[in-house]
Design a protein around this nucleic acid. Structure first.
Lengths: 357, 357
DNA sequence: CTAATTTATTAAATCGATTGAATAGCGGTG
DNA sequence: CACCGCTATTCAATCGATTTAATAAATTAG
């Protein structure tokens, strides 16, 4: 039989206190498992918990936060939620946070500096206890990091290496990724390998390129610089696609020969495939193509794109755990340790690459 | 010169009151633009605002919410954020909410009933003032709606028609979409048109099918039932792809002829393309294919998928405006009007369909 | 046997705002 | 001139918890 309480009155701590016969203090101490609860008799605890349960008591988050000065929330600031790259990271964050008492508050800056700052401010106002920034495509620009640092807020960035700035970072090992990518093509017999690398200003891009070069050096493979191109440093999340298509077209029209292509990421690879199609060619028949990221699209396009997988969900978890550690240890005073967490990429075989005939 | 305040002490309303020489009440009334502020002298307002500004005062959300019993938040419950269908809707919601004082709190149930309910509970505890549910792929099942109704919370569902249940809904006009889709193929000269429709239990699917049938009836077009298939009612967000590939393969292996295919959605279309490729055929050369939704992938695959676009961002906005209306008018007592808002779909031409040779 | 310590509980202050009722001044009215 | 309604501001209660310091009883120590 449901208690026929007056409908609109919420059950408060006082109600529980009255009904259980203990003081509000004791009830609070028991229900919030404060340190003092060590001294509360087991029987008392049980009685209080039972009454709370039976009344359907739910503490008021606002009252609680007001008094205890803790919001039990963390801000998650993502640069562009429509970037498929982000979504799995978010899932990792969410799953990890789920078992804690922290609520993620997600804000999407959709690639806008102003918005980013605005939302950052908003999150501060909502008194988040920590911050996870999911960065992609240019983020570094123009003192954003300074803004972050000044906030004096435990912060972890995932997807971009900013470790010098006394903020934690979690990223994939891009150098290893580049290495694995070209190695795969090499092992399929390809020797004339084109590369569409990312913008030079992007550190990810440089690391991947280093990996490629390292492999080439190790194998004595000659990288023909006439078939190495660089994406422009654009802002639009789809610019990778456009750029990939554009540059591939140029490559095809130049006289230089190549039988395989390392694309900066999956979108670039998709663009390359589009360009091939325009010339009535296709992957992998006329050119093997390998991407990077393993966004969901990569599996759905035809041909499926062979790619270097970033363990995105793991990256989300790792970043979250990093933050939680700090939050736990010092309740706010702490800063995230500066070091960089590198997660290993892996090769995902699909149909856009094949052995050289 | 920055004021050298003791660093950790936050600026409170009292500080502003003291410095400006008015009482806390007046300050509160002015800064929160309460009704009473009508009676506050313009000069006073200005002085208070100025001091607030100069002290860098930011009201404490918790104190404010505690006293005023308003959280200034709305819950956004999405069924699966990795479904690209959702993301643009979210953007619409976010953009619309941005200009208001409401903060969206986003929770992702990733296709799990239990999670959905858990997050629903959590949002109630956080005292959201309203709810936007972004539903896709089966949601109707098993009393979820009842749960929602019982919460006595203004709610709008986008993406699924639940208007009978006294909850607002915003969806695309699926019937019109189906009609437009087949019309497009018909106008390209196709007469033997296959259809992979969605699961029968999904109302979207039925409406689209109705639209297709209506067009056929109007034109006296015969729909050959041997080339009409139905996706199984699976849960997985990618089942559309698998299903599309599977059913297309079956269609190809049956002796029945067809020159075009209406796919339930873009993922299904991608699956169909994959199946064609396996048989060394391709769209649109061997078969024109039209999708539904216009998810971002549709533009990036090769060939680009001709599709029926759902105005997803608009749908998000519409749902949000619907909710805001209710929230404004009665501060909570109100329920969302039951009626259904149908938004028009539109044809997006790309390369997966072509005139019958 | 008293003092100190540990266990168990509570009174009361507090977090930082909002808000309904109260206080005045002031011009107009019958 | 007493009363009313309007403008302008403030007092004090309140929202619902947490937390510090205090109280009291029980146990141990000296």
């Amino acid at each position: 039989m449901a208690a026929p309480k007056s409908k609109s009155t919420r059950v408060t701590l006082i109600d529980v206190a009255r009904k259980s016969g203990f003081s509000p203090s004791t009830v609070s101490i028991v229900l919030s498992e404060a340190p003092l609860s060590r001294y509360v008799a087991a029987k008392t605890k049980e009685r209080i918990r039972k009454t709370a349960q039976s009344l359907g008591y739910r503490p008021d988050v606002f009252a609680r936060s007001l008094r205890s000065r803790r919001s039990h929330t963390v801000g998650v600031l993502v640069f562009d939620i429509s970037d498929p790259f982000c979504v799995l990271i978010l899932r990792g964050i969410e799953k990890t946070l789920q078992s804690t008492s922290y609520l993620p508050i997600l804000m999407d800056a959709h690639h806008d500096r102003k918005q980013f700052e605005g939302y950052l401010e908003l999150l501060m106002e909502r008194r988040v206890e920590g911050l996870i920034v999911v960065a992609n495509w240019l983020f570094d620009e123009g003192g954003l990091l300074e803004a972050l640092k000044n906030k004096h807020m435990p912060t972890v960035v995932v997807g971009r290496d900013v470790s010098e700035k006394h903020i934690g970072s979690v990223i994939v090992d891009n150098e290893a990724g580049g290495y694995i990518a070209i190695k795969h093509l090499y092992e399929l017999g390809h020797r004339r390998i084109a590369v569409i690398r990312g913008p030079r200003m992007l550190s990810d891009s440089n690391r991947r390129w280093s990996g490629i070069q390292r492999f080439a050096a190790e194998q004595g493979l000659q990288l023909d610089e006439r078939v190495v191109r660089e994406l422009p440093g654009a802002i639009d999340p789809f610019s990778g696609f456009e750029g990939g298509a554009q540059l591939t077209e140029e490559l095809l029209q130049s006289r230089s020969k190549f039988t395989a292509l390392v694309a900066f990421d999956d979108l670039t690879a998709l663009g390359a495939i589009r360009a091939l199609a325009r010339e009535d060619r296709s992957a992998p028949r006329d050119c093997s193509i390998i991407g990077f990221d393993d966004v969901p699209l990569a599996a759905l396009s035809t041909p499926g794109i062979t790619t270097i997988r970033q363990p995105m969900e793991q990256m989300g978890s790792a970043a979250t755990n990093r933050l939680l550690e700090v939050l736990r240890e010092s309740s706010g005073s702490g800063q995230v340790s500066t070091d960089l967490e590198l997660l290993p990429p892996s090769l995902v075989l699909r149909d856009s690459t094949s052995r050289l005939a």
